[in-house]
């Protein structure tokens, strides 16, 4: 007989508690991470997410200050409030990270994503696609007799909605940039 009352020959043997004891509501947060634009820094930030099992819904990055060599990473992640706090703390302590802003927590923000959407079709479907694109304020940036490429910006939800509408009309391909976001006001 063993300590945990496991009989000889038994297979119940996990010593670890496998359930997440702090399961709570999952929230999506948009974080702006200002980093030194050096090789490997993006990998380090992404490695934090994969290594610690955090989610990335969307990620964009570009140098935003050429003289100061600073890049802005916009990452949309989700987790319980405790996990979100932990993600921010983990990001903040990274050596090449200058600042972390939780745009979801810090007040209202604007979020935009750009998408290129290729739709192929003829006749009625083609006309309907064009009509819907107008409603969504998508621009035609390429066209052939049998296809369009639309360009649109908007919230991820708006792009999702547009893509859903295009699907039955001949959606072929979609390219999305991921979210860029800024806090509203000064």
């Amino acid at each position: 007989m063993s300590a945990l009352n496991i009989k000889k020959g038994s297979t119940s043997h996990s010593a670890y508690e496998l359930r997440d004891p702090n399961a709570e509501v999952i929230e999506a947060h948009t974080l702006a991470v200002i980093v030194e634009n050096e090789p490997g820094v993006l990998a380090r930030v992404i490695g934090l997410f994969s290594g610690r099992g955090y989610n990335i819904d969307s990620l964009t990055v570009a140098e935003v200050d050429h003289t100061g060599h600073r890049s802005r990473i916009t990452v949309v992640t989700r987790g319980t409030p405790q996990v979100i706090d932990q993600i921010e703390a983990q990001l903040r302590r990274m050596v090449p990270v200058y600042a972390v802003h939780d745009l979801t927590a810090e007040g209202p923000s604007v979020q935009r994503e750009l998408a290129l959407v290729k739709v192929a079709g003829k006749g009625e479907a083609r006309i309907e696609a064009l009509r819907l694109a107008e409603i969504f304020r998508a621009n035609v940036v390429d066209s052939t007799l049998e296809s369009f490429v639309f360009e649109m910006t908007g919230t991820p939800e708006k792009i999702d909605a547009f893509a859903d509408l295009m699907r039955p009309l001949g959606l072929r391909e979609i390219a999305r940039t991921g979210v860029a976001a800024l806090a509203r006001g000064i």
Binding site: A3, I6, G9
Partner: peptide
């Protein structure tokens, strides 16, 4: 020790 206590010896 773990095998004794947790894995049925």
């Amino acid at each position: 020790q773990w095998q004794e206590l947790l894995h049925g010896e």
